[in-house]
Amino acid sequence: MYIVYSYFVYLFISVNLTIWVARTLHKRGAIFLVDSFHGNAELAASVNHLLVVGFYLINIGFVALALKTEAVIGNTRAAIELVSDKIGYVMLILGAMHFFNLYVFTRIRHRGNGTPRPPFAPDAILRPAPARS
């Protein structure tokens, strides 16, 4: 019966961990995305949501795939070790995904903010500014 309990504990912790990370990213990443998309809040919200969906799919998929074990669990110690082992992998994957996301956002942001100021001040200012033609 150890193995069944181990599986349940593993699933419970991993899925909750995934949900917690996804929510944190969704909440804290929102402002970062708005900035990346030049203040286009609607687009940022849409991308944010899509990213969370992808995050859930990948992580819960990985959690499900990593569930299976050949180990024979005969005592509590082995059960704890197995769960810890599996959760360790899940956390590492979550961490890697998290940093990859940050990397992608930063790239987007750099591209968005790819507007370094002109390297010098203007020679003069025209007032009023030219009308669009």
Partner: peptide, 26 residues
């Protein structure tokens, strides 16, 4: 017509670039 005030800033031989914000670069 777009930059009536420009004559005071730039001569006829100056290359002039003006931003939509009115910044003039010579």
């Amino acid at each position: 017509s777009m930059f009536p005030a420009l004559e005071k800033i730039a001569g006829a031989n100056d290359l002039v670039v003006i931003s939509d914000g009115g910044e003039v670069y010579l």
